[in-house]
Simulated scan of single mutants.
Amino acid sequence: MSKREKQAIGQQILSAFRAAGAEEVAPDILLEAETLLDLYGEDIRARAYVTQDPIRGEMMLRPDFTVPVVQMHMANGAEPARYCYLGEVFRKQDHGETRPDHPRDNEYLQAGFELFARDPDADAEVFALFHQILAPLRLQASMGDMDLLMDAVRALPLSGARRAALLHHIWRPKRFARLLARFSAPTLTRSFPESDAPWTGLRSPDEMQARIDRLRTDAAEAPLAPQWVERLERLFTIRAPAPEALRQLRALAAEIPDIAEAVDRLERNLSALAARGIDVEAIHFDASHGRHTMEYYDGMTFSFAAAGHEDWPPVASGGRYDALAAVLGQARGRSIPAVGGVIRPGLVHELGGFE
């Protein structure tokens, strides 16, 4: 497949985004690594290409478009605003010592749409736009909601430190499961005997003492009751057509009242999609869907996948990222809700395009 063919598909998608009122933008390819590391954490190093500049310091080839688009909007954007773009992103896809039989591209084309608006119908607008563009490909639409999961974690009767640790690892299911198991069992007693020996190590004495104090406090905390673990596991494993998932979530909200607001929002989104002519019965809701997306999504998440190509990434994906927009706008005293997504023109071409 030639780059020209991918670009042609990308231009078709871009035209549809422009027709939906989006302004086309072209963010930089080389970005300051510090900002991305602050937002994503050090885990991004395993997926991004990092280089050193003698003047600008550590730089990173663009791993996605969302951060530079948000930065651009916060600098001079009006409200509401719709942006679209087409360009390459760069990510390390394959890990290990041997090259896989079917390697994924480390450089690939993305066409994207980002909406900055306080309109409660924004989630439905973006999902419906992607649904309309991708309709000829007959893809499977899936949906989740990270706020639903985070509200459930915030409701756990745990210390603030333990809840923060679980929230930090909610996008890393294996680490999250290990932490949840540890917090559900009695804490092993650890001894920190007094000593006249000098402090040694990379951390300062104050930092090490603070760490010891946190461990002592954690050791005194009671384990999480089994019913809370069971409720959380039931929530994380809800997978069903969207209306049925809504029914299950409504029942679970009786046991976890803190998720009721997120469940109400899901119901409004589904009603808004149905009003736009979308068959919500055909949308697959997976409560854990957002745990496998970019870590900045903190509300609705969605993806469109090709049947029979389970080894492919989604043809399109996106979601809401209010917290990211708030963090990047903080220096300018700005904050606005945001939702967006991307389509991979290369995968659209492999499926035969839109014809």
Rank of each mutant, 00 (worst) to 15 (best):
L14H: 01
L14I: 00
S15N: 04
S15T: 00
A16W: 08
A16C: 07
F17K: 05
R18A: 06
R18E: 13
A20Q: 03
A20T: 00
G21Q: 05
A22N: 03
E23T: 12
E23G: 02
E24G: 00
A26H: 13
P27N: 09
D28K: 03
I29C: 06
I29Q: 07
A33D: 08
E34G: 12
E34P: 01
T35E: 11
L39R: 12
L39E: 13
Y40T: 08
D43V: 11
R45Q: 14
R45H: 09
R47Q: 14
Y49S: 05
V50S: 04
T51W: 08
Q52K: 15
D53G: 11
P54F: 10
P54I: 07
I55G: 08
G57C: 11
G57R: 10
E58C: 04
M59L: 15
R62H: 03
P63V: 03
D64P: 03
D64Y: 07
D64I: 01
F65K: 09
T66F: 09
V67H: 12
Q71D: 07
Q71C: 14
M74T: 14
A75M: 10
A75N: 10
A75V: 00
A78D: 13
E79L: 13
E79S: 14
A81C: 05
A81N: 02
Y83M: 03
C84S: 13
C84M: 03
C84R: 09
C84F: 00
Y85A: 13
Y85V: 08
Y85N: 05
L86D: 05
L86A: 05
G87D: 10
E88N: 14
F90T: 05
R91L: 13
R91S: 09
R91N: 10
K92P: 00
K92I: 11
K92G: 02
Q93D: 04
E97Q: 11
R99Q: 04
R99I: 11
D101Y: 05
D101L: 13
H102G: 01
H102W: 03
P103L: 03
P103T: 02
R104D: 01
N106C: 06
Y108E: 01
L109M: 10
Q110H: 09
A111N: 01
A111T: 12
